[in-house]
Amino acid sequence: MHDPNGRLLLVRRANEPGRGLWSVPGGRVEPGEDEPTAVVRELAEETGLTVRPGELAGVVVRGPYRIADYRCDLAPGSAVHPRAGDDAADARFVDLAGYAELPVVDGLTELLREWDALPRV
């Protein structure tokens, strides 16, 4: 998810795998949920933001996990400043220079580049 300025929303993982590294927010689809519903719930839990999921950005398989990432927009009336919660130790929007300084999970940069989802500024 990008903010109106083109910065990318990232969270610093509080738990394994990837504890201490930065990644896009996400998590498991709970029983009875579809993927868009899980996206809304996970972003609210990890960042405090309310989003509207859009098109599928891409899918990657890591071990036994199928990870689907969706492009999202802030929902009307949502907070605009992320706050870390749940499985996140920190949450923030980052520009391209800030992204380059962060330790990110393996393969994230390549996937974001492939999906045209790196910070735009």
Rank of each mutant, 00 (worst) to 15 (best):
5 N>R: 15
23 S>L: 10
87 D>F: 07
34 D>P: 02
71 R>S: 12
64 P>N: 12
30 E>K: 12
84 A>Q: 01
96 L>F: 11
2 H>S: 05
39 V>E: 14
5 N>I: 05
97 A>L: 10
59 V>A: 09
13 R>L: 15
78 S>K: 00
108 L>R: 01
89 A>G: 15
99 Y>W: 09
1 M>Q: 01
120 R>S: 07
28 R>T: 11
34 D>N: 13
53 P>L: 05
21 L>M: 08
95 D>F: 05
36 P>T: 09
78 S>H: 07
54 G>R: 07
100 A>C: 07
24 V>K: 06
18 G>A: 08
63 G>V: 07
88 A>D: 07
86 D>R: 03
51 V>R: 06
49 L>A: 11
78 S>E: 01
11 V>K: 06
42 E>V: 10
81 H>D: 14
19 R>Q: 08
74 L>A: 11
38 A>I: 03
107 G>N: 10
16 E>M: 10
98 G>F: 08
62 R>Q: 13
76 P>W: 03
114 E>N: 07
94 V>A: 00
50 T>W: 02
113 R>D: 04
89 A>Q: 12
7 R>Q: 14
79 A>S: 12
89 A>R: 03
66 R>L: 12
92 R>A: 11
91 A>L: 09
19 R>W: 02
112 L>G: 13
58 G>A: 11
13 R>Y: 04
42 E>F: 05
57 A>D: 01
48 G>E: 14
118 L>T: 06
42 E>S: 14
18 G>W: 02
6 G>N: 06
121 V>A: 07
98 G>M: 04
118 L>N: 13
94 V>Y: 10
65 Y>H: 07
82 P>G: 01
78 S>N: 04
112 L>A: 12
99 Y>T: 05
14 A>M: 04
117 A>I: 06
15 N>W: 10
116 D>C: 07
62 R>M: 02
31 P>N: 05
17 P>V: 07
9 L>T: 13
54 G>N: 13
108 L>K: 02
117 A>E: 13
112 L>E: 06
92 R>K: 14
30 E>S: 05
117 A>Y: 14
59 V>S: 06
42 E>C: 13
114 E>A: 13
1 M>F: 00
84 A>N: 03
91 A>G: 11
44 A>K: 14
119 P>V: 09
103 P>N: 01
103 P>I: 02
117 A>W: 06
119 P>K: 07
20 G>S: 03
52 R>C: 02
33 E>A: 04
110 E>A: 11
90 D>H: 02
111 L>E: 04
11 V>C: 01
69 D>C: 15
33 E>G: 06
86 D>F: 15
84 A>R: 03
5 N>G: 06
59 V>T: 15
74 L>C: 10
22 W>A: 02
88 A>L: 01
41 R>C: 01
108 L>E: 02
52 R>Q: 14
99 Y>K: 04
51 V>F: 03
80 V>L: 10
75 A>E: 13
75 A>S: 13
